[in-house]
Design a protein around this nucleic acid. Sequence first.
DNA 1: TAGTTTCATGGAAACGTTACCAAGCTCGCG
DNA 2: CGCGAGCTTGGTAACGTTTCCATGAAACTA
Lengths: 342, 342
Amino acid sequence: MATDPPPIGHPEGPEAKVTMREVAIRAGVGLGSVSRVLSGHPAVSESLRQKVLQAVAELDYEPDFTAMSLRRGSTMTVAFLVRDIANPLFSDMVKAAEAILHPVGYSVLLLNSDGDPARDAAHIRLFARRRVDGLIASLATEVHAESLAALRAFKAPVVLVDRHVPEIEASVVSSDHYSGVRAAVKHLAGRGHRRIGLITGPREVLASRERTRGYKAGLRSAGIHYDAGLLQTGAYDADFGTDKTTRLLETDDPPTGIIAGGLMVGYGSLRAIRALGLSVPDQVELVPCDSWPFPELFAPSLSFVHRDASLMGRTAAELLLESIQDGTNREVMLPTEFVTAD
Amino acid sequence: MATDPPPIGHPEGPEAKVTMREVAIRAGVGLGSVSRVLSGHPAVSESLRQKVLQAVAELDYEPDFTAMSLRRGSTMTVAFLVRDIANPLFSDMVKAAEAILHPVGYSVLLLNSDGDPARDAAHIRLFARRRVDGLIASLATEVHAESLAALRAFKAPVVLVDRHVPEIEASVVSSDHYSGVRAAVKHLAGRGHRRIGLITGPREVLASRERTRGYKAGLRSAGIHYDAGLLQTGAYDADFGTDKTTRLLETDDPPTGIIAGGLMVGYGSLRAIRALGLSVPDQVELVPCDSWPFPELFAPSLSFVHRDASLMGRTAAELLLESIQDGTNREVMLPTEFVTAD
DNA sequence: TAGTTTCATGGAAACGTTACCAAGCTCGCG
DNA sequence: CGCGAGCTTGGTAACGTTTCCATGAAACTA
């Protein structure tokens, strides 16, 4: 007790941080033994274990993650790169992924790109310097050279969400946007619509391309001529949805059905329709993809192309863990579901 | 060029990570000099700087954050502890905070408590082990001994969000729930309601107490007798809102106006009202606190007690940075705004 | 009982960086 | 022209872990 000179303060007070060395001294054992006990190494006797654990308890020792990271070369941290954490789709994903990763010891580092590919690249490089053990990324675009270079230089496993970048070694979790939008077109056609528009994100993103593919396939099945003017791709924000919807509806031969690919695009689209004084779904039937929370409460008249953001997050996390353990990469496509307004 | 033996691979290929030592050798300078150049130390000659920077570029050197963290004792990481990142209120907060913290070099580590105080405590201890430079926390409750102990043992600066824990040294950013709810009561009373209910979170949380205080003050001003049966506190989830709303509305003398304290409580409350086949706002006028995105689009008939989640996030981040730099703690109360339907 | 294997343990080296200290250099001033 | 001050620079010692190696003891076999 009187062996070591505690600074001044209370016994449990604002002492400086306790190191493993002090635990070893207190327990009267070697430094390596403390490490072995704490990291669950098999070759330790019960008596040694007890001595160490008691010293740990007495000193309130907390191991230092930074030292561990340096020595082990593993930070037990994974990075999540999204366009916008405030988007419910992404926040649900992050939450679900965290629920998988936390129990096995990983913490989640979060970064927003705001849809800016340059920021994507900078963020990926930052993650590399931080030596994260893995990365789940929803890139702003698939064709930004700097981002791809950063991704190639990135040593740890990568899971891409709804993106397809052939030259990058990564697992991929995507959604079956093709079928979802195809079903939406079929639904609209079945309700008599012949002029059906699609507004979605940039072509440089897998999700947008798949939606476009499903859109065209749906039109074909319904025997509706494809009108390039009714297909608007470009961005995922609400303003884009508002803008394109307004333009479409102000043409001479406006669509009576609109599929909005992307949650914020859907918001924007609905805003535009309301602003024009049109009723939904009587004058314009809007079918958003990626629903906001409680759609049955807040837009009961709308059908949706739904996807399970939590499932995506869980799947991404599981693929990442697999890749961290085995080094294997897989591609998983999750279903979308067309939900009809009652 | 032929001086050092590169393993085998391509010049820019999957080489092992480059360390500072190799940069020093390549540049023909000392190890310390490389460090000085890269960390912007003033005492370096221009020629030395050039040599180092060139070697850095040639070798594609990326500094190792984990080593830096160990040596400097700073991880350039701050932790964000929230009840539910999928709640738009929190995701907006996190996004705004990140926007402040990232430009000055801090990364954000995210953890959910799911409203479980035990998880709060475990998370805080994890953050301590990870040696984060600061913590922004919205605790599940203010009275959980284990969480408070963890918080006391936490050495870095802390910012509490909408919580009041006198015995903890921390900055605080809170919202003026008192005035907001008071205005809501006034509004409802002005529209003729005499039976007004309040449903909100646990009493062990500042926000709930302030709402209760505002509620009672509002009733008093309006000359309405306070009926304890109309005040329901306990939790912040949607099911709580649904449950309490249903019970209130099924009593003999049900409220005609309901204030829902908390975004998810509001959701749940609306769900219950709809499920009972009652119309909003004609039969029951609901006033939620903390609006979901685009309330004017999705519930245009409702008035709201609004607060600026982004501003809260920004403020929390700024208080944290202040505290990291000066060690000073401050308390800031942000306004709420009562927004009338259309 | 002696030799060999197994196992627990302590000590030292290493992870990649920063910070301190001392030494060399140049420059200025007397 | 000589000496001290100031500015750069290189080397070394940490930071707190984990891992490897060697040692000693104990257990087992012959």
